[in-house]
């Protein structure tokens, strides 16, 4: 593998491992903290409110995860202006 490819693969490896670790922590938060919460105890409609609230928390965690992914790729690959590099 050429040097360019080795560098790109190494940086991507760093991104993937960071995101993998964050993902496991995120699912840990969901499993240990969010899932056992009883936000609304009403057995009928409350069940759906409970599910929606937890889904929103999961969505916020997912967006944060993607945001960190975005920052990492921009930092490693697009820090300098491409026009100057090529």
């Amino acid at each position: 593998m050429k040097r360019l490819n080795q560098r790109a693969v190494a940086l991507q490896l760093l991104v993937f491992i960071t995101q993998w670790g964050l993902m496991i922590i995120g699912f840990g938060i969901l499993a240990l903290i969010v899932a056992p919460l009883r936000i609304q105890s009403d057995p009928s409609l409350g069940r759906y409110f409970d599910a929606s609230a937890k889904a929103m928390i999961a969505l916020v965690l997912s967006i944060s995860w993607l945001f960190i992914w975005d920052r990492q790729v921009r930092l490693y690959f697009y820090r300098k202006k491409e026009a100057l590099q090529s």
Partner: peptide, 17 residues
Amino acid sequence: RTLLVGQPAKESEIVST
């Protein structure tokens, strides 16, 4: 495009990456 930021490469090299 991310893999090509540094310098140009052959298609086969990018696919391998």
